[in-house]
């Protein structure tokens, strides 16, 4: 059984009469110890999905699903108390902007020990030792001194290390990393990915890596979920999905990577933007931006088809034999 099992997840905002659909019928499953990359442009619903898993979508946001289970427990049926007991212990999350994700008024030690206090207990002395050990595990330079530092005294990379330390404090089975490297310097990005992957292997935890950077996914994920406008458009294992993408959107994303544009004057881009929550087109959501759109794409929305683990949402999936753009 999958660790995380989501069927037909929908997330809406706004008034019931005029809902804004952020995520529409999303299926996602993550196995124990698996590294899954979730990619897509801004506005594709990646972050909202992760917040829904954490139960951090507040009213007027509405989350509904046919099934939404973590380790066999129904996430939608949890009481607030059960939910809190799970957060930080079974599932933890790190965010995009590490500097603003730490509370500026409290020391690193306080914020680390707080997680331990809720889920592990023990006396303050023991918790402090654990916190120090966690900082060592995330390769924090000079960890003993950083314990009593405030976030503003740390660099962005160090703040993200603290966030990671906080997230792994209770050995979660699933770690959700929402754009963990986006706000960091390029040199730190690689270190941070190595660290996440190393921790993931040591602890055998599942890692859900949300990013818009396919290069990052290529480095560490074993499976990719491509999202577009609140829907999954393609899923597949690496490296298959990079070698022979089946959805035109995945192909376009790959074509936009700088390493696939060597020798060109300009990067290839995808014309247009992700449709907003109000102006989703009929038919295939991508058709206004898709070079291969046919009349059927305008009128009929394709379903996600294929065997589990390798699915595509396209009437005319690529076969890999088309001439390269």
């Amino acid at each position: 059984m999958a660790l995380l099992d989501i069927k037909q997840l929908s997330i809406g905002f706004g008034r019931p009469g005029a809902p804004l659909i952020a995520v529409d019928g999303l299926d996602l499953s993550i196995e124990e110890g698996e590294v899954v990359g979730v990619v897509g442009e801004s506005g594709s619903g990646k972050s909202v999905t992760s917040l829904a898993i954490m139960g951090l979508i507040d009213a007027p946001g509405r989350v509904s699903a046919q099934r939404m289970e973590l380790a066999g427990r129904d996430l939608l049926a949890l009481s607030p108390r059960e939910r809190r007991a799970m957060l930080g212990r079974d599932v933890a999350m790190i965010f995009q902007d590490p500097m603003s994700s730490l509370n500026p008024c409290f020391t690193v030690a306080y914020q680390l020990m707080e997680t331990l206090r809720i889920h592990v207990g023990g006396n303050a002395r023991a918790r402090r030792l654990l916190a120090l050990d966690l900082l060592r595990q995330v390769d924090m330079p000079d960890p003993a001194r950083r314990l009593d530092a405030y976030p503003h005294q740390l660099s962005g990379g160090m703040c993200q290390r603290v966030m990671v330390a906080m997230a792994i404090a209770c050995n979660p089975r699933l770690l959700i990393a929402d754009e963990p490297t986006t706000a960091l310097d390029v040199t730190i990005q690689a270190q941070m990915l190595d660290l996440l992957l190393e921790l993931q292997r040591q602890r055998g935890m599942a890692l859900m890596l949300i990013t818009h950077d396919l290069g990052v996914v290529a480095q560490i994920a074993s499976r990719v979920v491509v999202m577009y406008a609140g829907q999954v458009v393609e899923t597949g294992a690496l490296p298959r999905i990079f070698k022979t993408p089946r959805h035109p959107y995945t192909q376009a994303l790959l074509a936009a990577l700088p390493e696939n544009n060597l020798g060109r004057k300009r990067l290839q881009t995808i014309p247009g933007v992700v449709p907003g929550q109000y102006d989703r087109p009929a038919g295939c959501l991508l058709h206004p931006r898709c070079a291969r759109a046919a009349p059927r794409c305008v009128s009929e929305r394709p379903a996600l088809e294929g065997r589990p683990g390798s699915q595509v949402r396209c009437h005319f999936p690529l076969t890999g034999e088309e001439p390269r753009a």
């Binding site: 954490m54 957060l87 965010f95 994700s101 707080e114 906080m166």
Partner: peptide, 26 residues
């Protein structure tokens, strides 16, 4: 609305602690 309030909630803190410790202090 701050990110660190979301972090505090993601830790599994009670709403009371989030409001009266993390948010109030700021």
């Amino acid at each position: 609305r701050e990110d660190y309030v979301r972090t505090a909630r993601a830790k599994g803190l009670s709403w009371f602690s989030v409001v009266c410790v993390h948010a109030l202090r700021n």
